[in-house]
Design a protein around this nucleic acid. Structure first.
Length: 655
DNA sequence: TCACGGAATATTTTT
DNA sequence: TATTCCGTGA
């Protein structure tokens, strides 16, 4: 909606020299005003920069920061953009409404939960909570022992999540992606229904529910939709290629009033289809928003020409995409290399040797990354790097918040907020000696029956006798109940109680204790426990565990090992892509599915476009794959089919 | 009913 | 690497 004041604002002269620092396409996007806008931003084309400048420009022209909504996929991306905008302009930019889809949904639902049949004080289940709950119900339904081939909790959670995010039935997901479970289809479906019912009964939202219910809220309640959508004058969404159908519809509903919506993304970098993301969203954007203006950003500021030539050729193999050809003005650079290393250990040694060579030439290890398809692909390399004493950080893989000891500690705090949190009660009770599933179950029922909140544990009669670990637990809760404590003090109390358990349970407890102390430091920033727990669920610190703090070694001076998924948006001087072996990458799982194969190709594309100067793609050419019984020897088909003119091929001699 | 040990196993995972 | 699964013995 064009208003007089915004018209007038455009006449005003700016203090940021947009014309001088942006290329013509970027400038068009930044200066674009009202209506729907789609920016197709190729890899390294200044996507973040464009969004940042647009935020700054709107604020500079007097648009209220609160009425700008910037949705991103990570908290990190959002804060980074806003702080960059603030540096361009001033502190006002930090007031821009923003965050992830999920945290936005959380905020709206805290306010409007009753409209969708929930209480405002709902708890959020993170992924492993959801898996435990599924596991519990599975046991209750007696689905574990009798059938051996029954899917694991994690797989079930994947199936359920995919069904919800793609807005299709569980049956369809099983049929399409897990045909080997079709004989268990009835059980899986009833488990799904039980899971839904249980969440509603306990006032639990899992991550997907946040989107589902936000969507329902906006769709079914016209008054709420009106009020929410009119409070955002400009909406911007980053990484649009990784949104799923639900998120696309949420965006549509949010734009209901003002229709000023800008989506930024790159269809060629859509790599989250396994989670329900649909890269067609970005193709369909102009259909959903008639009158969309499309701007393409094709100048690449990252990579040298030989790398760009390779990646352009690579993505040519994709069947469906917005046509774009990236170009650069960065001259020189070496031809990317494809290296057959023979076996896995040779591959590790080749990479290690090359890294040593490159760092000797003066490149900081922090400017080098090794990328791979799956977390465990780097295990052998990690051993080799340790042997050679090359420090590294591993990104992706196991997360701080997901590690057992962190979850143990949080469980004690969670029951304080939600005493009917069965998952957390089980977790903390099972830590006690001589308590197994049966005892935990009985105890939970008893505590819940007391109807006395978390202190119910103190008054339960018929406590299991001869439980030596039980007294300290009671004392802990009595202590917490006896006087008002700050969040951090509660954490300390729990840690004092938990420390002996930690020592008993893990032989690497010193390392884990450090993690817990780090958590206490985080807790000091919070004034109320519930807020802390919500943040831990929605915006957990993304430090990875076991990240050894070698003294003096700053994070950005260390070599990076990363899954390709976690490498999105980043760049390095030199990039190694390991395990580029046909059958591993693309993995055997995706070989007979055209769509999945396309996604694997995009994944390879994302990996290769991270490199600025040097790119090595390696594969062990002689691998026997036990799972499939096949010998693998060809390089990934995504590079194998490319002409020699874009890629130099080498074979490393076996040692 | 629980504890323990050894073996198997693992896509990817911003929320 | 870290977790989970499964069988066994107490």
């Amino acid at each position: 909606m064009k208003t007089e004041s915004s018209q007038a604002n455009h006449q005003r002269s700016h203090c940021i020299p947009y014309q001088d620092v942006l290329n013509p396409s970027q400038l068009r996007a930044v200066m674009f005003n009202d209506g729907p806008l789609l920016v197709i931003a190729g890899a390294g084309s200044g996507k973040t920069r464009t969004l940042t400048y647009r935020v700054a420009r709107l604020v500079e022209e007097g648009v209220s920061p609160h009425s700008i909504l910037l949705l991103t996929f990570t908290r990190k991306a959002s804060t980074e953009m806003l702080s960059r905008a603030s540096r361009l302009l001033d502190r006002r930019c930090e007031k821009v409404s923003g965050g992830t889809f999920h945290s936005f949904a959380n905020g709206a639902l805290r306010r409007y939960a009753p409209a969708v049949g929930f209480k405002a004080g709902f708890s959020i289940l993170d992924r492993s909570d959801a898996e435990s709950l599924i596991g519990m119900i599975k046991k209750e339904l007696g689905l574990t022992s009798q059938k051996r081939g029954f899917p694991k909790n994690r797989t079930l959670a994947n199936v359920f999540s995919k069904a919800v995010n793609k807005v299709i039935s569980v049956e369809d997901v099983v049929f399409d992606d897990y045909p080997h479970f079709s004989e268990n289809l009835d059980a899986v479906t009833s488990l799904f229904n039980a899971y839904q019912e249980r969440k509603a009964r306990h006032n639990f939202f899992d991550y997907d529910d946040l989107l589902v219910y936000l969507h329902r809220l906006l769709k079914n309640h016209e008054d709420i939709r009106e009020s929410v959508s009119s409070s955002y004058r400009y909406i911007m969404v980053d990484e649009y290629q990784d949104t799923n159908l639900l998120q696309a519809e949420i965006m549509y509903l949010l734009a209901n009033k003002n229709n000023n919506v800008m989506a930024v993304g790159d269809d060629s970098q859509s790599i989250y289809a396994f989670r329900g993301a649909n890269f067609k969203n970005i193709m369909d954007f102009p259909k959903i928003f008639p009158g969309t203006i499309i701007i393409g950003l094709e100048q690449n500021y990252r990579s040298v020409q030989p790398i760009l030539t390779l990646t352009n050729a690579m993505i040519e193999q994709a069947a469906e995409k917005y046509d774009k050809k990236l170009f650069t003005q960065k001259k020189g650079g070496l031809m990317p290399r494809l290296v057959d290393a023979g076996n896995e250990n040779n591959q590790s040694r080749f990479v290690t040797d090359k890294i040593k060579e490159i760092t000797r030439e003066g490149i900081s290890p922090g400017q080098i990354a090794v990328l791979f398809r799956a977390g465990f692909h780097s295990f052998d390399l990690e051993i080799e790097l340790n042997r050679e004493q090359i420090p590294f950080v591993k990104v992706g893989g196991f997360k701080f918040m997901e590690s057992a000891h962190i979850k143990d500690l949080l469980a004690h705090l969670r029951v304080i907020i939600n005493p009917y949190d069965r998952i957390s009660w089980y977790r903390l009770l099972l830590l006690l000696n001589k308590v197994g599933p049966k005892t935990a179950h009985d105890m939970y029922e008893a505590i819940a029956n007391e109807r006395a909140g978390y202190t119910g544990i103190l008054t339960v009669k018929n406590k299991p006798k001869r439980l030596d670990g039980f007294k300290p637990l009671e004392e802990l809760f009595a202590n917490i109940d006896s006087r008002p404590l700050t969040v951090a003090e509660m954490g300390e109390a729990v840690l004092r109680y938990y420390h002996p358990i930690l020592k008993r349970k893990y032989d690497d407890h010193p390392k884990r204790l450090k993690d817990l102390e780090q958590l206490l430091t985080i807790m000091e920033r919070y004034r109320d426990l519930e807020g802390f727990l919500i943040d831990m669920a929605l915006e957990p610190p993304n430090t990875s565990v076991g990240d050894r703090l070698s003294a003096g070694q700053h994070d950005d001076e260390r070599l990076v090992l990363s899954t390709i998924h976690s490498a999105k948006g980043l760049e390095w001087h030199t990039v190694f892509i390991i395990w580029a072996l046909d059958g591993r990458f693309p993995s055997v799982h995706s070989l007979n599915n055209q769509e999945e194969l396309e996604e694997e190709l995009r994944l390879m594309y994302v990996a290769a476009t991270r490199a600025k100067e040097n790119l090595f793609i390696t594969y062990p050419g002689q691998i026997y794959d036990r799972a499939s019984g096949l010998f693998l020897g060809r390089p990934s088909r995504f590079v194998d089919l490319l002409p020699d003119s874009v890629l130099e091929r080498y074979t490393v001699d076996l040692w």
